[in-house]
Design a protein around this nucleic acid. Structure first.
Length: 489
RNA sequence: GGCCCCAUCGUCUAACGGUUAGGACAUCGGCCUCUCACGUCGGUAAUACGGGUUCAAAUCCCGUUGGGGUCACCA
């Protein structure tokens, strides 16, 4: 059997089915393929596998495309950009699958099967209890029937004539040699009775006709690979290389379904990361380091990922999503932004919570500087910034009750008076005045800081008191201190 | 259950026969300190188990156990 030459420029693809959002595991598959294409000067193809008509939707296609664009995983051929091997939607390639299926039938490598779905169900029902779900294989009723037996006019599926002896073997780029006995293969269906191909057939016909040289995908597809290799051979096509990636699991080691992940606070759809204020490069960094490594390096720019990526350093074992580490990666990328970029990035997140801040607002950059070491995502940043930009901060009842005591309120009134009289209101001046007043009253800062913080921010935790005051300005600072001092006990 | 795959700190991983088994996140403690963070210094923590092969095994082989994947006219 001939194989793809490793000398030619790689052609890789990402082939999602549009049945929902872009899953974070899918994003990682897309990323690894994209990295390989970009590193090698190859071609990255996007193909939409929309043959599951019951579940595929145009809206989902759009969501997936939007997510890929947000991540910056641009494709060289596919929806929106076209290319020489289109169309890139499987439902627009039906003639192609039909032609290939007919050819396999003509060559005796596949056959028409007139057994109906109902008959199959009946056979399954007769199986002993335990095997009903697990062990049913189509009994190859139509496998060797002559063409004269065909029920013309009746619906039929096209099944592959799987070999029943020998074994199929391939050399995976990350798992090494994988070998499985052909006897475990069913005469699987290539074409449904309505002419729409099933996954294994559609993918192979497309990978052949699109000239794909390396198939990178999740390890849940290892089981499909022998079937597909048999199909490549039956079609007389070169077999591409395969690279399977271990799975991303939930923190307790389960398959990352949205429902299960939600329970554990893990976000599965890529769009949620965008909406919570991750930088695309940060998400790429986290999922790249998941199952792949480059020495001790943890934080990578996009270019570094492209430069360092290779299949040899991909691990084989499934991993579990680590939320804390993912947030740390997000934080590390956020900190690389300069203040202007950070401020511009956070404005939409402020707006999303109803707080409109103009890019030119003089409080914006100083305010942003105070929360930068504290926010791991932009949604957190917006939440921390809110008190600066509202008329009156939202007061946390628990901390109000704890810190705004009668004594504290009297002290805040005094502090307000002191600050109101200050000639300058920068952080240093405010700090000096505040500490001067503390000294005069023989008070420790600890006793007044929390009440003041609650008065100014409504919360028990915030950036430093004096930096907050400086950003707020004299008028607002004094007003909030007095408002807290006046609040009913 | 059949078939396939996997196995180093809690988690992500380094090691490609010879290391005091390294790093990062998390965690614990010190420093910093007006809170929360950030920063900084330090600590705890792993080769699943049992047999081989070898002068030498986390690394190679076999078995056990555990985990995952998959068994559709889904992808």
């Amino acid at each position: 059997m001939h194989r793809r030459s490793t000398m030619e420029k790689p052609r890789v693809r990402f082939a999602p089915s549009p049945t929902g959002y872009l899953h974070i595991g899918g994003a990682r598959t897309a990323l690894f393929n994209w990295l390989w294409a970009r590193k090698t000067g190859g071609t990255f193809v996007l193909r939409i596998e929309d043959t599951d008509q019951a579940r595929s939707t145009d809206a989902s296609t759009q969501v997936i495309i939007d997510s890929l664009r947000w991540l910056g995983l641009d494709w060289d051929e596919g929806p929106g950009v076209g290319g020489p091997h289109g169309p890139y939607f499987q439902m627009q390639r039906l003639d192609l699958y039909r032609a290939h299926a007919d050819r396999l039938v003509a060559e005796g490598k596949a056959y028409r099967c007139y057994t109906t779905r109902e008959e199959l169900e009946a056979m399954k029902a007769k199986l002993p209890e335990g095997k009903k779900r697990d062990g049913f294989v189509y009994p190859r009723i139509w496998r060797d029937r002559p063409q004269s037996d065909w029920l013309e006019g009746q619906p039929y599926v096209v099944r592959f004539k799987s070999p029943s002896d020998g074994a199929t073997e391939f050399d995976d780029k990350v798992f090494g040699t994988i070998r499985s006995p052909n006897a475990s293969l069913d005469d699987f269906v290539l074409l449904r009775s309505d002419g729409v191909p099933l996954y294994n057939f559609g993918a192979v016909v497309d990978d052949v006709t699109m000239g794909i040289t390396l198939v990178g995908r999740g390890s849940d597809h290892i089981i499909n690979t022998p079937k597909q290799i048999l199909l490549y051979r039956a079609l007389g096509a070169p077999v591409p290389e395969f690279a399977h990636l271990p799975m991303m699991l939930t923190p307790d080691g389960k398959k990352m379904s949205k429902r299960l992940a939600d329970q554990q606070g893990i976000d599965v759809p890529v769009e949620v990361y965008r909406d919570k204020g991750w930088l695309p490069d940060a998400l790429l960094n986290y999922i790249a380091r998941f199952g792949w490594s480059s020495g001790d390096q943890e934080i990578f720019t996009r270019d570094e990922l492209v430069a360092h990526f290779d299949w040899d350093h991909c691990g084989k074992d499934d991993g579990r999503y680590d939320k804390k580490k993912s947030l740390w990666v997000s934080f590390e990328h956020l900190r690389k932004l300069d203040d202007d970029a950070y401020a511009a990035a956070v404005i939409p997140f402020l707006a999303a919570s109803g707080i409109n801040v103009a890019p030119s607002d003089p409080r914006l950059i100083p305010a942003v500087r105070t929360i930068r070491p504290r926010a791991q995502r932009l949604c957190d940043a917006a939440e921390m910034l809110a008190f600066y930009f509202v008329d009156a901060p939202v007061m946390d009842a628990a901390v109000v009750a704890k810190f705004l005591t009668a004594d504290a309120k009297a002290q805040l009134a005094e502090v307000a008076a002191v600050l109101d009289a200050l000639p300058a209101f920068d952080e240093a001046s405010v700090g000096a005045a505040f500490e001067g007043w503390l000294a005069a009253r023989s008070l420790e800062i600890k006793t007044v800081a929390q009440p003041a913080r609650v008065a100014l921010t409504g919360k028990g935790a915030s950036p430093g008191l004096f930096e907050v005051m400086a950003v707020l300005g004299r008028e607002v600072t004094v007003r909030r201190l007095r408002a807290a001092a006046d609040v009913a006990a």
